[in-house]
Amino acid sequence: MANDKKVLIIPCSGIGKPVGTVSRETAYEIIDNLSKGKAETVCLALLMSQDKETVDKVNYNYVITLDGCAKHCAKKNTEECGKVPDKSYMILKFAAANPDMKPRGIIDIGEGGKALVNTISSNIIMDINSLVEDVTQN
């Protein structure tokens, strides 16, 4: 059976902390480089505005949420639209586990932040592959 579902990577839109930027950069790294064609994103604000096309897209496809902090905005706003994310990640946990990969700032996360993005995205890639493969095999 062909699997036409994509994996939507929904980062938190955290603008006030470097972990918000890391979340967004991780989503782009996966979509642009690591999982091209399998993954996409949607605007989180559009989802929270209950835009029908966006809500339908989220409910049809697989969803992985990436939250910068413990407020879990990406996860909660996704759930608010009736979709339980297939996988949810919190950037702060990765940051705590990798203290040598410290983002420098909000606009420019620096080399430490980029290393953190690479570490997180390589974890998520495995999830994407297993989600897409699961359905292909069924």
């Binding site: 938190c12 839109s13 006030g16 929270m48 407020k71 905005c73 909660k76």
Partner: peptide, 28 residues
């Protein structure tokens, strides 16, 4: 939009402005 906003918050008007992550209205 985000870059312009951060330019104001961090460089041009750091003492006169503040922000909130938009989706926090639901999650917060």
């Amino acid at each position: 939009s985000r870059l312009a906003t951060l330019d104001i918050l961090l460089k041009r008007k750091p003492f006169d402005t503040t922000t909130i992550c938009l989706p926090l209205f639901i999650a917060g």
